[in-house]
């Protein structure tokens, strides 16, 4: 039996948004100290690694390790039905083939919305107007969600069942590495740089020197360069730019993938870039005290 309740269900919504364009299918690995996801994109150029520690949940129970294979697009569709303020509880039986997701609204107002929602759906087991029934079950009848799962409504709770699948994913061992360069900067600023650079070309060079971090792109249109300097004493923590450098590093990367990574921007105000010569970059978004989402991207190398 696995059961985990996240008061801030938004984190789960944002996490799936942050990986669904990169990976189609993945396993949620549950253990008694965390839930984690590791998956590569189809072309095996990048990898996403998620960790949410059990301590970050307000209820967490995992009797034995479980791997829950899911389709990211389908999970994203179901999570879109959760409000940003909803608490989300995940539940799975040890030998089950579905993941139950329970969304609970923060206040009673949502119950009223809910009745309308339920009456609007076809195939209800209970007659319309039976909002005072404890529980009723509705076949999913929304075009976008057909075949994805079943929705059960219990008063102020929405319970969705996501079909699970067996996924034989290749797990990679990622060595602990002392990176030569660590850059911490506002995640929004990083997103903006990646977006702007994509206008000019498809390959980004990131170069870290004593001067600061230089993001550069060369394309048919022209060239672009952005220099970010250390700013460790900014008033707000999230505005700080901190650069730790043992030696200068310059690497080049496909902007297409970096752009996928910036889908995680909403998860936190800060992004951390780790680089060493000739190895994949790590783009990490810390998620409060709960965990992180890290992306690894292989560099472009000289032919």
């Amino acid at each position: 039996m696995f059961e985990a309740r996240l008061t801030s269900g938004k984190i789960l919504k944002q996490l799936i948004e942050a990986l669904k364009d990169l990976v189609q299918e993945a396993n949620i690995d549950c253990s008694d100290d965390e839930i984690s996801i590791q998956a590569m994109d189809n072309s095996h150029v990048s990898l996403v690694a998620v960790s949410l520690r059990s301590g970050g949940f307000d209820h967490f129970r995992c009797d034995r390790p479980l791997s829950l294979g899911f389709n990211a697009t389908n999970m994203g569709k179901i999570l879109k039905c959760a409000g940003n303020e909803d608490a989300i509880t995940l539940k799975a039986e040890d030998d089950g083939d579905s993941l139950s997701m329970v969304f609970e609204g923060p206040n009673q107002d949502r119950i009223a919305d809910f009745g309308e929602f339920a009456r609007g759906a076809r195939g209800s087991d209970s007659p319309p107007g039976s909002r005072r029934e404890k529980c009723w079950k509705i076949d999913f009848n929304f075009a976008t969600m057909r075949g994805v799962g079943v929705l059960v409504v219990i008063f102020d709770r929405k319970i969705y069942e996501l079909k699970l699948m067996d996924i034989d994913s290749e797990q990679l061992g990622i060595p602990d590495t002392d990176y030569k360069v660590t850059i911490q900067m506002p995640s929004g600023e990083f997103q903006r740089i990646i977006r702007d650079m994509q206008v000019l070309g498809d390959t980004l060079s990131i170069s870290c020197t004593k001067e600061g971090v230089k993001f550069g792109v060369q394309g048919d249109l022209g060239t672009g360069n952005v220099l970010i300097r250390q700013n460790a004493h900014a008033e707000k923590d999230e505005d700080r730019v901190m650069i730790e450098m043992e030696e200068p590093v310059e690497l080049t990367f496909a902007l297409r993938y970096l752009n996928f990574f910036t889908k995680a921007t909403n998860l936190g105000p800060t992004v951390i870039l780790n680089m060493s010569p000739d190895v994949p970059i790590v783009v990490e978004y810390p998620i409060g005290e709960t965990g992180h989402i890290k992306y690894y991207l292989a560099p472009k190398i000289d032919e």
Partner: peptide, 14 residues
Amino acid sequence: GKKQAGLMGFFAKK
């Protein structure tokens, strides 16, 4: 020119 490296060249399968 530069070509895209694959991730498997850096990380071993578990």
